[in-house]
């Protein structure tokens, strides 16, 4: 740990280590509740009868929906906790996300999500000395296809 740095040795040790993968199912009702919460009336996310008539044949997950609880949210909570316990600053905010979609995700899919911390950096912001953690999660479906990759950035100050 360098003088005045927010990045402890415990934090540094998290970088590049993949977490235990999480396996979960994409449920139809969870997709519907998610679309309703956003206020998105798209029948591909709300109406199973309609969706069955389309080439997809099932409800699709709205972009970013990855099962309930949304893995982004669950992994984020665990990551918040891990980063604070490893000595990161106590105030933590979500700074942004980047999704790369490869294959369709829909009702009935079983996904395996694996998170790893890609980098931890720090710089001065209007909030003072601020630490940025970039976490990457890959999602494979039941066929083993890569369906989604997300990169989240968390800031702590």
């Amino acid at each position: 740990m360098t003088e005045g740095s927010l990045i402890t040795d415990e934090l540094r040790a998290l970088i590049g280590v993949a977490w235990e993968p999480a396996v979960f199912k994409i449920e139809e009702g969870a997709i519907q509740r998610y679309a309703q919460a956003i206020g998105d009336p798209n029948p591909m996310f709300n109406d199973p009868e309609y969706a069955r008539m389309t080439r997809h044949g099932r409800l699709l997950a709205p972009p970013g929906f990855t099962g309930w609880p949304v893995r982004e949210a669950r992994a984020k909570e665990k990551l918040f906790d891990t980063l604070i316990k490893a000595g990161g600053p106590p105030r933590i905010l979500d700074a942004g996300v980047e999704f790369e979609f490869f294959e369709t995700i829909g009702a009935g899919d079983i996904l395996t999500a694996t998170l790893s911390v890609a980098s931890i950096t720090e710089r001065d912001t209007r909030l003072g000395r601020t630490m940025f953690t970039a976490a990457e999660t890959t999602y494979l479906n039941q066929k083993g296809d890569l369906v989604l990759r997300s990169r989240s950035t968390l800031m702590q100050f």
């Binding site: 998105d40 709205p62 972009p63 942004g96 996300v97």
Partner: peptide, 13 residues
Amino acid sequence: GALKRAWLGQLMT
């Protein structure tokens, strides 16, 4: 933040 991101998802879909 993720809710605003979901709105942007709807904008695009």
